[in-house]
């Protein structure tokens, strides 16, 4: 299989790339290409122009900034995050998800920001960013704007990115206290679409949840922001009652379809189980530290 014919440009600056996108009706950005190229081979996507951003320097970074935010550049690969000690130190949810994205070979090419932009309801990173209250920085001809990921993803495989904008960075906001959390994914085998996956982020201070977020993967037509479930945790000390309530609300927020990976009821059950299990894991590791 090979894609339809397209024109190929590999600019060496973001400005150049944005100009190319602006001047062409049917252009697409190529970063890691691990979703785009398969879609082009299947001819689900037939862009007339591919703007390869891999030759633009200084976009492969991920770093913890002095203001407490964590920033991930457009060419930061999943494998960079999987191996990162700074990620483990600052962003436990992202560190838990990194080794579970696709498979090891895809992780060497695929990018974090590209995955968020692909907006696959099965995408791991968009759900993590929703849980963390993270944003995407979009750069266009008139400058940059930040869009929260919960608003950035507007539907399955659809974002609010304008035709002449490039997502140049993902930003995770500063923690309100100590950040903890986790990611659990049920897949039949490595690299398969998830039966269901759950991202939980918790900012804790003095044993109390200051901020929380829950993102759900593969249990609806797009990434699900289970905000009511997360709200049930805020202000609690992660007591059984609050955790049970959050698990129940997360299952209610999901909207799965029964398929060969399991019935809708089964997937809802996994969502609630994963919420409970992630929080239990967090509590267990806190006890070991204390």
């Amino acid at each position: 299989m090979f894609p339809s014919r397209f024109r190929y440009e590999a600019p060496t600056s973001i400005e150049e790339a944005i100009a190319l996108l602006g001047a062409n009706e049917d252009a697409k950005v190529l970063a890691g290409g691990q979703s785009l190229i398969p879609m082009m081979k299947l001819r689900f996507a037939n862009p007339a122009l591919l703007v390869d951003i891999n030759n633009i320097p200084d976009m492969g970074y991920h770093r913890a900034d002095a203001d407490g935010s964590f920033r991930i550049g457009a060419l930061c690969r999943h494998a960079d995050l999987e191996k990162s000690t700074i990620l483990r130190e600052h962003q436990p949810l992202l560190a838990a998800a990194a080794p579970l994205v696709a498979d090891p070979i895809v992780r060497t090419r695929g990018t974090f920001v590209g995955s968020v932009c692909h907006a696959d309801p099965q995408g791991d990173w968009a759900a993590c960013m929703v849980a963390l209250g993270g944003s995407v920085i979009a750069q266009g001809p008139n400058g940059k704007r930040a869009v929260e990921v919960k608003d950035f993803v507007s539907g399955p495989f659809t974002t609010v990115l304008a035709r002449d904008e490039i997502a140049i960075e993902g930003v995770v906001p500063k923690a309100q206290g100590t950040r903890t959390g986790g990611y659990l994914k049920l897949e039949r085998r490595v690299g398969d679409f998830a039966t269901a996956a759950v991202a939980v982020s918790l900012d804790m201070s003095g044993g109390v949840v200051k901020n929380a977020g829950i993102g759900l993967v593969g249990v609806g037509s797009q990434t699900i922001n289970a905000s009511e479930a997360a709200a049930a945790l805020i202000g609690s000390s992660l007591d059984d009652e609050a955790v049970d309530r959050a698990a129940e609300l997360a299952a209610e927020a999901s909207n799965p379809r029964g398929d060969h990976r399991g019935s809708a009821d089964y997937k809802r059950h996994i969502v609630s189980t994963f919420v409970t299990r992630i929080i239990a894991n967090v509590q267990r590791s806190e006890m070991q530290v204390a």
């Binding site: 290409g33 090891p104 070979i105 895809v106």
Partner: peptide
């Protein structure tokens, strides 16, 4: 040095 699926990389890359 990094493993890639060569069916999912354009030769030009």
């Amino acid at each position: 040095g990094a493993p890639v699926k060569s069916c999912t990389v354009f030769a030009v890359q």
